[in-house]
Amino acid sequence: MTSSQNSPDIVSRSGAQSWFYSDVVKDHFFNPRNFMQDESSYADAAMGLVGSPACGDAMKVWIKADPQTERITDCKWKTFGCGSAIASTSMMSVMVTENGGMTLDEARQLKPQHIMERLGGLPARKIHCSVLGDKALRSAINDWYRRVGRLDKVEEGYGRIIDQETKVTDKDIEHAVLDGADTLEKVQAKLKVGIGNPACIPEVEQLMRFYRAKYFGV
C-alpha cells in the first residue's frame, strides 16, 4: 500500500484503528474530475446506476461514445460514498476518457484493482468502497448498446467471479440472496462458495449484505 505518512489520519468512530489516504486519492477526493453538474444535456446519454444509500455506496455513471469508433468521448458521474468511493469514481472517469478515450470493449475490462493502482492504493478495509464504479460503468455501456440498437453487444453475462475455485460469481450470490439465503451458511449450502477458498468469504459476506440491502432493505 502506498500512502503518504505525513497526512493527518482519520480516526474511526470506534477509535480502534486509523488509516491514511494517498495524495492521489486526496487530490481526486478534494478536486473531483468530471462529476455531473448539469444533467440537462445528458438526458439522452447512456447511464448506469449501482448501489443504494442504505448499503453505504451508490454510483451513477453517464457516458457518451463515438458511434463509429466506439471510443468513450465523455464520462460523467455522481457518487454517494466516502472519500475512497468518490476518488475511485473520479479516477475511473479520467481513465476511460484519457488519450482519446477507451473503446467500450476496453472499458468493459476495467477492474477495481486497475483504478486502485492509479490511485496509489487504498487502505485494505476501504477497498469495498471502490468496487462499484466499474459496475456502474459496465451498466452504462450496456445501456449505450441498447440505445443504438446493438442488442448483440449487451452483456448481461454471469457476472464477476468471486471464488476462483468454485467460479461462483456475484450474480450467483445475488440469486442465492433472492432465493432466501440470509446467512453465510445458507449461501454456502447453495453455492459451496469459500469453503475451499476462505479468503473470498469477506467479499461474499459484503455482497450478501449489499444484495440484502438492495432487495430487502435490511
Binding site: R13, A16, G56, G83, C129
Partner: peptide
C-alpha cells in the same frame, strides 16, 4: 469531528 458512518469504522454497518 467524527461520524457514525460505516465507511469510517472497521465494520460495514453504520453506528
Amino acid at each position: 469531528c467524527s461520524t457514525g458512518s460505516a465507511c469510517a469504522s472497521s465494520s460495514l454497518d453504520p453506528s
